[in-house]
Design a protein around this nucleic acid. Structure first.
Lengths: 168, 168
DNA sequence: ATATATTTTCAATAAATTTTGAAAATTTAA
DNA sequence: TTAAATTTTCAAAATTTATTGAAAATATAT
């Protein structure tokens, strides 16, 4: 396979992949493009490569910056802004985990704390089932939260090594 | 908080939560409803509780059955079909992981295998960056794949216990 | 300051996804 | 059988989400 075709395929499947993870297609595609670009790219480079409008490009780059996955780079003597993506995939994964934990897991755990204190007699079957469900989701959620905290702080070598040890 | 309100909140946030994970709102809501229902529910129960149409209810129940999260239950002497969700959250998580691994991670790893063999001279910077990116994603992906396999087979007590041991 | 390049915003539009509801198919009872 | 109940399908409508593009804002150079 030629590089041009391989790049296209990677960008396109990374985009499709993203949509399964609550990330919009274009944002994932821009990220993919920057991941495989040796040099920082301008908005115009990205627009042209992905065939998308200026506004769309701009908004999605900004979103990627919010997620901490892309950085603005200023090249001396250049007026345009350049953008680059973190290339260390372990760091990328940790950054995504960190953001999603903050945006999704933590608010969910807070809600579960509240819901667990629902009024009512536990001898009532519907109350009992409700509380039991909430509690067990909460228990697993809290465990995941702790584990992810460790992961976010860990070095890949240590973390993957540790996993290997237990899980053969 | 009253049970009725708590149920509503749980169903509604579980639905919103689902949309961040590539699952449609209604499917997640039906799942939530079944999780907190002590007794199996009919299509009509679900339609009424969530205020959704018959067709929508039916399609999403079937999708939940495909995912292995909901079972059809036949009550003796009853003509209608009843539906129930697996209540053991660890099993639910494992089932979701298993399905998503099969549907998303495995195809992605296959693609990466192909893309890694792109033609071209590794001294060419754009070729090198491409291959390096693909390889590092693949490496982490394969590791994740193995770890998830272990998780899918594991009992909660064993798995969480093992995690606790390494991760303090 | 003024002009020029560049980025950002956002209302309008387009595209994708979800939902409805009624008709068709299927299942069960009489 | 036939009839009634129930489930399934799917084209059309509604809703949600993403994209465009041009105008406004901002930044930089002369």
């Amino acid at each position: 396979m030629k590089l041009t075709e391989a790049k296209q395929q990677f960008i396109s499947s990374w985009g499709a992949f993203g949509t399964h993870w609550g990330i919009n297609r274009t944002m994932a595609q821009i990220h993919a493009l920057l991941l495989i670009s040796p040099e920082p790219q301008t908005q115009d480079d990205i627009m042209e490569e992905l065939n998308i409008s200026r506004g769309n490009t701009n908004m999605n780059i900004r979103e990627l910056i919010n997620w901490g996955l892309v950085d603005r780079v200023l090249l001396t003597g250049e007026r345009k802004e350049y953008f680059t993506a973190e290339k260390d995939i372990w760091k990328v994964v940790k950054q995504i985990v960190k953001e999603r934990k903050k945006r999704e897991l933590e608010p969910m755990l807070q809600l579960l704390d509240k819901l667990e204190e629902v009024e009512g007699d536990k001898r009532d079957k519907s109350v009992k089932t409700f509380i039991d469900t909430i509690s067990s989701i909460k228990k697993l959620g809290k465990q995941a939260d702790k584990t992810l905290d460790v992961m976010i702080k860990a070095e890949e070598t240590w973390f993957v090594g540790a996993l290997m040890k237990i899980f053969k």
